[in-house]
Design a protein around this nucleic acid. Structure first.
Lengths: 240, 240
DNA sequence: CATTCAATTTGATTCAGAACAACAAAAAGT
DNA sequence: ACTTTTTGTTGTTCTGAATCAAATTGAATG
């Protein structure tokens, strides 16, 4: 059963929220106010499903805080994490792909806050706001690039390298500097990592144990700290 | 060394070439003439490289005839076929992804003819021609969808299923009805199939031999005919 | 027609990593 | 405090598919 728990947000909607985000970076305060007035803000608990693959694409979203993952589920029920979306990015932008339904499921990986707009405003936004379309192309382009890399990776690298790549991507996107290295800034399980790499939690667990012995990482429950990023880069076969 | 052989085209540029293609389907003959006058037409031998990953994205293309593949090459020199592009579609549309360089290499899989335009016309086209932008989004969206499927496939299916999927995709896109089944309408090697599925030519060869014994396919040098598409669907685990 | 080269087949061997299995430990409920 | 559930570890087995190694077939070339 889909997990759709949500909490209403009490976040104060302030112009400064959007001013520095790429999609709206070229707008003046009046325009930003205009956009904010159309937006709905919501808080989502970690693990909440925002929309599911195949749903009518009714709204598009901007992740203000937290972390999202784009998941696809096979007929057999296996989960594949296609992509991670860090705060500040748009998601659920089906219209930008010429689609009327969401092509994948969106699940929060951490407690998150997102703005959203009815999809009917999409064309207006594209037409009206300087650079919005261009930024959207770029976002889509980057994601296409990432997916492309994933395909190459899956086709040519073995599990250890793929997991190293996945972890490097995560610490690049959400790494938080801590005492003994860089920590992935949201709860992440071995299972998650296996769903990002097309492996099994067992294999991931073994690999992490090995890396821990070598002092490359330090991990606990739903928590991974990379102590020697450089070693991971070497293991990954570079070219992240 | 990149293989860049080309032959100049003598194809007669006729309005009817574009009239029925999605990107230009809503235009009148005057507009189409306009577009054609800006286009360059060229013929490419099978195996020709049209542009390479990382090249300055100087032109965008429309494949009129033939078949293209989008290839990525790893530092180790392994080839991964990311995508096939059938006649009638745009390619090399870096601008649509907000990029200034091509994100992958384009190689013809068969003798082909393509129109192309300088990239500086891109924004004009988007602004000027009704539906061009929308169709572009759709094209991009479809490719994103395909890539997404590839990722899921690689993460969850084993080689036999992946190869079955790849072949089904090919016969859907370019299948030509022949006496005893549907033939892939361009020269394709075991190696090609392995580069589409992240496998090896040996494994592909064995699998095809097996399928041939079962009467599912019939193959020769650079040639594959699917006699029982339905069986392939079953093998693929459906969900192509 | 002989030669060369590319594509394919097939066998033998090896091994990465999945699958299976059991247990441990932490967290969350009751 | 006790049970249940979730998450993680680790051992063992087994197999799919890569790798290694030849041989064969067919097309292209001079």
């Amino acid at each position: 059963m889909p997990n759709r728990k949500r909490t209403n947000a009490y976040a104060r909607l302030d112009e400064s929220l959007l001013r520095d985000l790429p999609p709206f970076s070229l707008l003046d305060d009046v325009q930003i106010r205009e956009i904010l007035d159309l937006a709905r803000s919501r808080r989502y608990d970690a693990g909440a499903t925002i929309f599911e693959e195949g749903d009518e694409a009714e709204r598009f979203y901007l992740l203000l805080d937290g972390y999202m993952r784009v998941v696809r589920i096979t007929p057999e029920g296996e989960h594949v994490i296609a992509l991670h979306i860090p705060a500040g990015q748009l998601f659920g932008i089906a219209k930008a792909l010429g689609r009327d339904t969401y092509p994948a499921t969106s699940v929060t990986a951490a407690d998150s806050v997102a703005l959203s707009w009815p999809m009917r405003h999409w064309d207006d936004f594209v037409a009206k706001y300087e650079g919005f379309a261009a930024q959207t192309y770029k976002t889509v382009g980057n994601r296409v690039g990432e997916m492309n890399n994933r395909i190459v990776e899956m086709a040519t690298r073995q599990v250890e390298q793929r997991i190293a790549c996945a972890m490097l991507r995560l610490i690049n996107q959400t790494g938080r500097k801590v005492e003994n290295g860089i920590e992935i800034d949201f709860p992440i399980t071995r299972q998650d990592l296996s769903e990002m790499t097309g492996s099994t939690l067992h294999t991931v667990s073994r690999l992490l144990s090995g890396w821990e012995k070598q002092g490359i990482v330090e991990s606990g429950r739903k928590r991974i700290t990379v102590c020697q990023p450089h070693q991971l880069v070497i293991l990954s076969g570079a070219q992240v």
